[in-house]
């Protein structure tokens, strides 16, 4: 599914305490890609909500579930940050993942609405054989620092991951 090398690829356990360091990582990446303060906050929020959903619903609070997050830049049709979040938790029908009616003021159920509001793409799909995959995308502003993150990957020593 990936058509560009990942800038970041991490594996984490399904523990709420790990949300903060992942947010910090995404915030730093977003800022360096040229997203402004509000957009950076929105991206961190979207990823936070996605991971929280996996922890609460995919793994139902179990602390030993595995979650994979990768981030890459895709160039066509528009330059955008592409984030994939995958898990091995409970599968749900993507068509059943819908934001709730916001006029019904009650605790909970806001995560999907927030994710969809702050990203350009928010698509759930079933993984094979288990778990779910979520793709989040957001267009990268045209005025940004250039050349810092290109298609090269790997370490300075050997050029491989």
């Amino acid at each position: 599914m990936t058509d560009a090398p990942s800038l970041i690829r991490v594996e984490l356990l399904s523990q709420p305490e790990l949300l903060a360091p992942v947010r910090a990582m995404l915030t730093s990446l977003s800022e360096r890609l040229g997203f402004d303060d509000v957009e950076t906050g929105h991206l961190a929020l979207a990823v936070d909500e996605a991971l929280a959903n996996v922890i609460r619903h995919g793994y139902e609070g179990a602390a030993d579930g595995r979650i994979w997050l990768s981030a890459s830049v895709r160039e066509t049709p528009t330059r955008r940050l592409h984030i994939e979040i995958e898990d091995q938790g409970r599968q749900v029908d993507p068509d059943q993942i819908n934001p709730r009616d916001l006029d019904d003021v009650r605790p909970g159920g806001l995560g999907v609405h927030l994710m969809r509001e702050v990203t350009d793409t928010c698509e759930f799909e079933r993984r094979t054989p288990t778990g779910m995959r979520l793709v989040l995308e957001k267009s990268i502003p045209t005025a940004r620092p250039s050349g810092r993150y290109d298609k090269s990957t790997g370490t300075p020593e050997n050029g491989s991951p």
Partner: peptide
Amino acid sequence: PYMDSSGVATLVEALQ
């Protein structure tokens, strides 16, 4: 500096 939907839900609960 930051609040996610679980924090918002906590405050909605507090409002109720």
